[in-house]
Design a protein around this nucleic acid. Structure first.
Lengths: 130, 130
DNA sequence: ATAGGGCTTCCAGCCACTGGAAGGTCAAGG
DNA sequence: CCTTGACCTTCCAGTGGCTGGAAGCCCTAT
C-alpha cells in the first residue's frame, strides 16, 4: 500500500502520515523505489490514531493508547484512567468557554450596535484600569 | 515605566509584552540606556490587550479592537459584529467539546476498568475498521 | 517520448507565546 | 570603588500538530 492508498483508507492526509512516521507513531516498510509500503496493520493503526485524535487525545496520549492497544495483557483500568483524565480536561475547557460566553453575551447585549461610537464592549476591555 | 512595572500593572509577562512590541501591538519609547520606556497609555493598552485576549479574541482581532478603541468616531456596530462572530465560534467550540464529552462518557461508562484486558474504549478506537 | 499523477525529501510557517543563553545597566551595601 | 543581585537587552530555539511549497524522482498510459 502506498501512502495515498493508506491516506484514503485511514482518512488522514498523507502529510500527516509522514509526520506520524517522523515522530515514530508508525514505522512503514520501504519498497525498492524508496516509497513507503504500508501493511494492513499500519493502515489499521493509522485509523486508530485518527479516531483517537478526533476524540481529542494528544499525540502523547495516542502513543500510550496505541501501546495499550497492542499489549494483549493490558488492564482496561489503565485505558479508563486515561480517558477519564481526558474527560476532566474537556469538562474544564467547556466550563471556561461557557464563562467566556456568558461574559461576552452580557457585553454584546448591552451594546446597542449602531452608528454611535459609545460601546460597552470597548468600555469593558478598557475599563479594568480606571 | 520599565517593562517590569508595566508587566505588574497589566498582568502580562514581560516576555509577552516584548512579543507584542515585536508584532507592533505596542510601540514603547526607549530610554537612553536602551530600556523600553512605557507611558501610561502603553500600560493601558496592554491591560486592554490582556482583557481582550482573556476573552479569547485572537491577536488579529485584538489589533482591530484596539484600532476601534482608539478611533473616537467608530461605530459600536463594528465592535458588536466582531464580538458576535467570536461568540459564534465559542458556541461552536462548546458544541464540539460536548459531542466529544458525550462520546467519551459513553465509552468510559461501558469500560469496567479493572485488571482484565477487555476494553470497549480501545475497541471503539480500533473498531471503525473492522 | 511525453504528460500526468504520485511519491520523495527538506525547509518554512502557522499561533501565541515561552525558555534560556549571553551580556549590559542600575541601585544598594560594604 | 567594588561587588552583588535584580533588572534589562537581544537573539535563537522550542512548543503542538500539522500544513504548504519547492525541487526532484518514479510509474503508468498514451
Amino acid at each position: 500500500m502506498n501512502i495515498g492508498d493508506v491516506s484514503r483508507a485511514s482518512g488522514l492526509p498523507a502529510k500527516t502520515i509522514r509526520y506520524y512516521e517522523d515522530i515514530d507513531l508508525v514505522r512503514p516498510a520501504r519498497g525498492a523505489n524508496g516509497y513507503r509500503d504500508f501493511s494492513d496493520q499500519d493502515a489499521h493503526k493509522l485509523a486508530f490514531l485518527r479516531r483517537a485524535r478526533s476524540l481529542g487525545f494528544s499525540i502523547e496520549e495516542c502513543r500510550v493508547l496505541l501501546s495499550l492497544y497492542e499489549d494483549r495483557g493490558r488492564a482496561s483500568a489503565d485505558v479508563k484512567a486515561l480517558a477519564t483524565e481526558h474527560l476532566d480536561r474537556i469538562a474544564e475547557k467547556i466550563a471556561e468557554l461557557q464563562a467566556l460566553q456568558a461574559t461576552l453575551e452580557t457585553l454584546v447585549t448591552r451594546c446597542h450596535g449602531d452608528d454611535r461610537p459609545d460601546c460597552p464592549i470597548l468600555d469593558d476591555l478598557a475599563g479594568q484600569m480606571r
